[in-house]
Each structure stands twice: as structure tokens, then as C-alpha cells.
């Protein structure tokens, strides 16, 4: 192997709950191995160290909800050779993107005691709406295996394996019996991006789409079947209206829920 300098890593947080960064800390043994292979130069969740860039890889958590963040993310992009967004906030705007469908001024006045303290944009937007993103790790939170896989792929110079398949392919590969077909349980697996390893259906729960939509999901057809499984308008509206509410593939589904069942 040719000699190479130690790659540098930075972890950034925008508007988010920190859960995805915690996933990195949860990697435990892998994290120890990782610190032997990369130099973590900026990771405020784990250490007060905040060395300046450039960085080989930046992991970016959170969505953009303030003007200051709009400036910072451009900086992060400039400092980073590879930028990986981690989690539904960063990839789709997160649950806080529900504001995109409502009036932020109204929220501000109703929710906060001193509304003037709140400095926010009218929308919560994914990182990719502001800068070029190299890879996206979906999920709320992200999947630990995927995170380690992406970092090892980066170290090996490999394209990370982040297939845009449905959750169903993972579910079937695990040998699960389909919860929708066998139990009548509503499940978003057929239109949801793989990566979680079909976690919920493995425990006989329907997928609730926390990894966001696959490319070009046929939500209209799935909605007809969700109605067969007993979902009504309100539930249908809610099921597409969570962590990935603003992801285009799911945001458009909300308009399709008005269709009467056949």
C-alpha cells in the first residue's frame, strides 16, 4: 500500500436532535478503530477540539433553518473534500420541516413566550438545497452499520454501497414474512429507501418511512393499498408527514391521499 497522510474528519450539527451524531459515538469499537485511521478534527458532540479545515470528509447532521446556518454550510462545503449528510434532518429537512406546510409566524407567536428571541427562517431545508452533497445517509436516526460502511468505503477509495432499493428487498433478504400481505398491517416499506435492514417489519411493525422515499416512489398506488389495510384520510396524511415530510417523494403523496378508495 502506498503511504498516505491520515485523512481528516469533521462532524457538523445544524438543526437537529444530535441523535445521528450519537450514532457515531455508539459505534464504540469501530469508532476506536476509526480514530486510528482518521484524524477527527472537529466533533463538538464528542470533544471541544475544533481545528480548522480543510477536511477530507465532513459528516453533516441537521437541516438549515437560520440565515447563519445558510452561511456556515457554504463554508463547510468549501472546507470539505467529501460531504456526507447524515439523517433525515440533513437529507430531507427533518420533522421540523413541517413548518414548510404552515405559517411560522403563527407558531412563533403561539409556542414561544418571547417570540422575539426566535431567529428562524420560514422553512427547514435539507443540506442539498444549499450545497452539493456527495453522499446521503438516510434515516431517523441513521443506521450505525451504514455509517461505518460509508467511512470504510471512503478509506478504501470505494463508492459506498447505499442502494436506492425499497425496504422490501432488505425485508425479504432477511427472510421476513410481509406484514402488509400476511397481517394486513399498513407499511411504507415498498416506497421507502433501504438502509435500515428492515428493522420495523422484522419486529412485525409496519415501516413508517424514516429513511425517506426511494427515487420516484409510486405513493399513489401504495395509498390505495393502505386504505385497504384500514387507513383513513387522517392517518394517511400523518403517515407521510413525519421525518421526511418535505422530501419531494413523500410531500407529493399528501396530495394523493384525497383520492377516494376504489
Amino acid at each position: 500500500m502506498a503511504e498516505r497522510s491520515t485523512p481528516t474528519l469533521a462532524v457538523w450539527k445544524f438543526t437537529s436532535c444530535d441523535g445521528c451524531q450519537l450514532t457515531l459515538l455508539d459505534c464504540e469499537e469501530d469508532l476506536l478503530a476509526l480514530t486510528g485511521q482518521v484524524e477527527i478534527r472537529h466533533f463538538l458532540e464528542a470533544s471541544s477540539r475544533a481545528d480548522p479545515g480543510p477536511y477530507d470528509v465532513s459528516l453533516v447532521e441537521g437541516s438549515i433553518t437560520t440565515a447563519e446556518q445558510e452561511r456556515l454550510i457554504r463554508q463547510v462545503r468549501e472546507w470539505s473534500r467529501v460531504l456526507v449528510t447524515i439523517g433525515a434532518c440533513a437529507t430531507a429537512g427533518g420533522v421540523q420541516a413541517l413548518r414548510n406546510f404552515a405559517d411560522v409566524e403563527e407558531f412563533r407567536s403561539v409556542v414561544y413566550a418571547t417570540p422575539s428571541y426566535v431567529d428562524t427562517l420560514a422553512t427547514s431545508t435539507p443540506i442539498a438545497a444549499h450545497v452539493r452533497v456527495d453522499y446521503e445517509l438516510r434515516g431517523c436516526p441513521i443506521d450505525r452499520r451504514q455509517l461505518v460502511a460509508v467511512l470504510s468505503a471512503f478509506l478504501a477509495g470505494r463508492e459506498p454501497d447505499l442502494p436506492d432499493d425499497s425496504v422490501c428487498t432488505e425485508c425479504k433478504r432477511r427472510g421476513n414474512t410481509c406484514v402488509m400481505v400476511a397481517d394486513g398491517t399498513p407499511c411504507l416499506g415498498p416506497v421507502t429507501h433501504a438502509g435500515c435492514g428492515a428493522l420495523c417489519p422484522t419486529y412485525r411493525r409496519g415501516c413508517y418511512g424514516c429513511f425517506g422515499p426511494v427515487r420516484a416512489p409510486n405513493t399513489r398506488s401504495l395509498i390505495r393499498q393502505l386504505r385497504v389495510c384500514g387507513m383513513g384520510d387522517a392517518e394517511l396524511d400523518r403517515v407521510f408527514h413525519t421525518f421526511n415530510a418535505a422530501a419531494p417523494g413523500f410531500a407529493s403523496a399528501r396530495g394523493e391521499t384525497d383520492e377516494p378508495s376504489q
Binding site: M1, D30, A33, L34, G36, Q37, V148, A149, L151, S152, A153, L155, A156, R158, D161, P163, D164, D165, T169, K172, R173, V214, R215, A216
Partner: peptide, 23 residues
Amino acid sequence: EVTDLTGEHGERWQRWSSCFDLD
């Protein structure tokens, strides 16, 4: 392809795939 974090030990795995996947 799977590698450990040193990159020196690799494994190649095969998994079912589907002609319905865009990839």
C-alpha cells in the same frame, strides 16, 4: 465489497438483487 477500516482485509459478498431496482 466490505473492508475493515485499515482497508487491508476485504470481503466480497453477493446478495439478491432485483431488476426493479433503479441501480
